[in-house]
């Protein structure tokens, strides 16, 4: 088990956004959290990465307790977070964005190797590497956000809504890269509104509803589950 979340509860003031959920991620898996808006998916991921304060419960990463540790330390331990809505550094160029992600990597050879990998996965970024990121399209910004995660190079990559607001073709491209990252050894925890897409690549999945996990199972099981089909797949 690379990640183990136990009875996680996160509050925003008096509002309980996540009401004591437990789940785990095994090494090498793709696990996805699906659910409607406001179900607590993003809050859960942010709490895992230390961006949100955990009220009760524990988060264990590689056997170590990382509950309420500073985010940069969690990244250093090998948990990379691709935040919702891309969050590109708009005043820097594409290359500089990637270099920021390499801040914790000390080995220069490894850095240039990971840059090459990003440019191989997303040739579009290579064309635009000296441009200011203000000139990138939404899809290219998401590619850059994923590219940054590749350069940071965690064992567990947490992706928050990577398909949000993107054209279907680009969503496919992003998901292919996620699959490839997984094949190369990274464990993936994915939070997605596009439930069909997420469930079809996931090994296991959890359904979140208003801060609670209501269903869990393999991706295929949930795809066939009539309740899920009804609520999230719109068939």
């Amino acid at each position: 088990m690379i990640l183990e979340v136990n009875n996680l509860q996160v509050n925003y003031g008096a509002i309980k956004a996540v009401k004591g959920i437990s789940f785990y991620v095994n090494e090498g898996e793709i696990v996805t959290l699906i659910g409607a808006n406001g179900a607590g998916k993003t809050t859960t991921l942010r709490a895992i990465s230390g961006l949100e304060r955990v009220h009760t419960g524990t988060v264990k990463f590689k056997g170590e307790d990382i509950t309420n540790i500073a985010p940069h330390k969690i990244v250093g331990m090998g948990l990379t977070h691709v935040p919702e809505g891309r969050r590109i550094f708009t005043n820097l160029t594409v290359m500089e964005n990637l270099r920021m992600a390499a801040l914790l990597v000390k080995d220069k050879g490894e850095i240039s190797k990971s840059f090459d990998e990003v440019f191989e996965l997303f040739p579009r970024l290579k064309e635009r590497r000296t441009q200011s990121t203000l000139t990138l399209s939404g899809g290219e910004q998401q590619m850059l956000a994923v590219g940054r995660a590749i350069v940071t190079g965690g064992d567990l990559v947490v992706l928050d809504e990577p398909s949000m607001g993107l054209a279907p073709m680009i969503v496919d491209e992003i998901f292919n890269v996620i699959l490839r990252l997984n094949k190369e050894g990274a464990t993936i925890l994915l939070n997605e509104q596009n439930a069909y897409m997420a469930l079809s690549i996931a090994d296991r999945a959890y359904v979140l509803e208003t801060g609670n996990i209501t269903l869990e199972g393999t991706g295929k099981d949930l795809l066939d589950n009539p309740a899920v089909q009804d609520a999230y797949l719109g068939s």
Binding site: H72, V75, T80, T90, M100
Partner: peptide, 24 residues
């Protein structure tokens, strides 16, 4: 330097800087 780039990253987006392992 990487210090300056880290500072600019913080200016542009503090949360993203955090998730890249920058000690804000």
């Amino acid at each position: 330097s990487s210090y300056g780039r880290a500072c600019m990253a913080i200016r542009d987006n503090e949360i993203a800087a955090n998730t890249l392992g920058i000690n804000v």
